[in-house]
Structure formats: C-alpha cells, structure tokens
Design a protein around this nucleic acid. Structure first.
Lengths: 222, 222
DNA sequence: CCAAAAGTGTTGGCTCTACACCCATGA
DNA sequence: TCATGGGTGTAGAGCCAACACTTTTGG
C-alpha cells in the first residue's frame, strides 16, 4: 500500500445512477472523465462529500453541478468500499439511484466532466471504477421496487395514460406485459386517480391518470 | 459548524447490529460506551475504518475486538451520514447486520467498552447516536429476508429440528406460525436436507435437518 | 371506411390459510 | 399410562396468468 494511502483517511464520496425513460427505453446518464488515469472513461456523476454535509445533499449537489437538475427522486443503494476501487486512493462511495421524468431536463456539464450522455441501460459502455456494479445494483433495485411501491411516479409526467405507464414498466422490466392484467393489478393497488379529461389525438381518446400521492409509498402485500 | 468539523474530512465508520436467538427470543448485542459525552450510553459495536481496509473487514475487526467472534454472517444495511449524528464530528457510518447461532460465543469486551450485553429486541434501552434507526432498519431487513432467502441458517446450529426452525421464525417475525403451513412452505423451498438421525429425548424423537447449502441463497419467487 | 390505439372478462390452475387429531417416546 | 412435544391432510378462498375481440377516434 502506498504511503499516501496509509496516511490519508478514507474519503467519502457519493455517486448517482440517474435513470429516465425515453421513447420506451430505460436510459441512464454517464459522464466522461476529464482528468487522471481514467481520462475519457465513462462513469456515473459523483464526487466527495463535504464536511458537515448530508449524504443526500452531496448527491443532489453533484447531480446539480453536472446536469443542472435541482431536484430528483433519490434513494441510497449501497456503499462501495474496496480500497482499490479508485486508483487515486481509498474512497468509500455511497451509491444512489436517481430518477427523473424527462431526460431533456439534463444540461451539458459545466466543467468537471468532458461530456455527459444518456445510454440505454442494456448497452452501456465499459465503466470506470466499480460503476458497473453500481449499475447492476441500481437496476435490480428499480425493477424490484416497481412491484411494490409507487416509485414509477418519479419517471412519468404528472398526467399520463395507461399506455405510458405500461410502456414504462415494460421498459424497466425488459419484457412485455399483458395489458389487461397490468391494468387490473395497478388499479388494484389504488395508487392512481383517473382524471375527467382525456388525451385527444389521432385515435381513440385515452383516459388520463395521475398518481394519487406523489410521495414514496409502499403497498402492503400482506 | 465548528472549526474542527469544517477542517476535518468526514470519517468513515462501521457499526454492526449483531443478532442471535436465545430461548425463542430475538436478541441483539449492545455495548456500553466508556468515554466521551455519551459515556454509559448503549450502542452497537463499531469503529472507524482504516485506510486500505475493506468495509466488511472493518466490521469483522470491530466485532472481533469487542466480542471475540472471528466470523459471523455480515450484510451491509445502510449508510448513515447526518453530520450531527456523532457529537464528536462528522462520521459517516456504514451499518451492518451480523448474525450468529449462539449468543454464548460472545466474550466480554476487552478495553474499548465498559460492558456488553444481549437485549431483547423488543426491549432495547435508549441508544446513542442514531442507533435506534439502525436497529429498526436491521430488524426490518431481517424479517424480510427470512421470507425469501435461506438467511436463517446463520442463526441456527448446523443440525436442528423443525420445531427449532419454527421457533426462530416466530421469534423474529414476532407472531406464531401455523406448524403445518410452515413446514410445507419451508420444505417447498427445497433448502433443507432431512438427516437419517433423530434427536432423542424425553418425547417422540424429532427428525433432524440441516440446510442443504450454508451459503447465501435467494429463492426465486417468480 | 380504414388504421391505430384504447378498452374490456372469464376461466383454470395454483397458492395460501385455516383448522384438529394421532403418534412416539421416556419417565 | 401419562405428559410432552412431533408429525400429518384437506377444503375453500383468493390470486394470477393466459387469452382476443370490440370501441373510438381522426384522417
């Protein structure tokens, strides 16, 4: 172990796996590193936690500084602590999952990173650090929570059709769903409110829904 | 914020919620703090992560130094990062759940703590730091994982009877279980091997079982 | 009237729960 | 023979998956 490592205390960082769904595809945001041994490699946006700062606040701050986002659904996933995970030294990283409804909200990065880009989750480039582990972990968590929480509201506009909701679930789960069974199950959870307005377009108007509560909520499975 | 806080980087610690079942009661181990503002308060054993050290190794090391245990099932739970959670400064703590089969394996602490003691989970004393949150989190996780993993093998001797297994589940879930349904469900998971030997005693001999695999395993629910 | 998307029910299999009595043993 | 804990089956309810046609609209 290098002298540098053995003298410095482990540092604390946060990294965020930011998901959004675009045209029926689940995507996540990667940034391209600008400096250091890993230059030009892709990674999730993140950075060191400041003294006196909450972990969630650090995650938001780093997300904001690289995407311009001022809010997103955030959920802590797991903490990665292998002392060799970062070639620059021992950095313990708290991984987060972040969700937004519209990938278009993200602005190009200011200065810390060379670029940022949405990638389809099933086609990620090779990732720096242990970020592939984070990606796997985040996807697993997201899939699981679709089934027993209202977490999907973070990935949809306030008002949406059942077809949009179904497309979202199918995109994340990676398989098609039966429309009738899906509708029954979702309505059975009692999370949605049907609106009186309809979406009009070229075809038969679709009923519009919103989530009854846009607040994290677990459905008791009993 | 104090000068001390704003200069020092956040430190990284681990804390372990160690569970064991004793005579049908779920218990967890608390240690009594010896120094500082929180002297005499109860808390979970833990301490700072060293540079170059894996988080799991730090958790084991701290457990070992306060209990003499050299191995235990360990699972990372959640990372607590409120900068005010420790009055001595900003300490980010990675919480673990630890499981052992026999509370008797634990030795009195060497020097760091004033005392250690098993407490029934439903009757914990007031805890230092944010350790009550850790306790809640750990218990929730343990309950949940009983249902879809073989995690219980960590809390039982290698060989056991169905009655012991049922008592374990009942103790953790905090409610009685139907013996026939329980047996059917567990056997349906295919995790157990029945041994040819029987436990003999005052009454009808009980069939003995062991876990087919004493390795973490998730049962596909499909 | 045609294309496209929205909306709607039923059936069979499976799973889960509730529930009570007999068995094997040592003392 | 008795006390004690071990072991077993069934029926009804609820849940889930599979499955295809009709409706509504704009162009």
């Amino acid at each position: 172990m290098s002298i540098r490592n053995s003298l410095a205390r482990p540092r604390v960082a946060v990294d965020s796996v930011l998901f959004a769904v675009e045209r029926g595809r689940l995507k996540c945001l990667l940034v391209q590193l600008q400096r250091g041994a890993l230059r030009d490699k892709w990674a999730f946006p993140g950075g060191l936690v400041r003294t006196g700062e909450q972990l969630d606040d650090a995650a938001i701050r780093e997300l904001h500084s690289t995407t311009g986002l001022s809010r997103a659904y955030l959920e802590q996933l797991f903490t990665f602590g292998d002392p060799r995970r970062d070639p620059r030294g021992h950095v313990v990283s708290v991984a987060y999952m972040a969700l937004i409804a519209d990938p278009g909200e993200v602005q190009p990065p200011a200065g810390k990173y060379a670029a940022s880009q949405w990638f389809e989750v099933s086609r990620l480039p090779p990732l720096a650090y242990d970020h592939q582990l984070m990606a796997d972990y985040a996807l697993r968590r997201l899939k699981a929570k679709l089934g027993y929480t209202n977490i999907a509201y973070n990935l949809l506009p306030k008002v949406f059709t059942f077809a949009q909701l179904e497309e979202l679930y199918a995109a994340i789960l990676g398989r098609p769903l039966d429309r009738r069974n899906f509708r029954r199950r979702i309505l059975g959870m009692g999370l949605l409110r049907e609106l009186s307005a309809k979406r009009r377009g070229r075809h038969r108007p679709a009923a519009l829904y919103r989530f009854a509560r846009r607040v994290p909520q677990v459905i008791e499975v009993l």
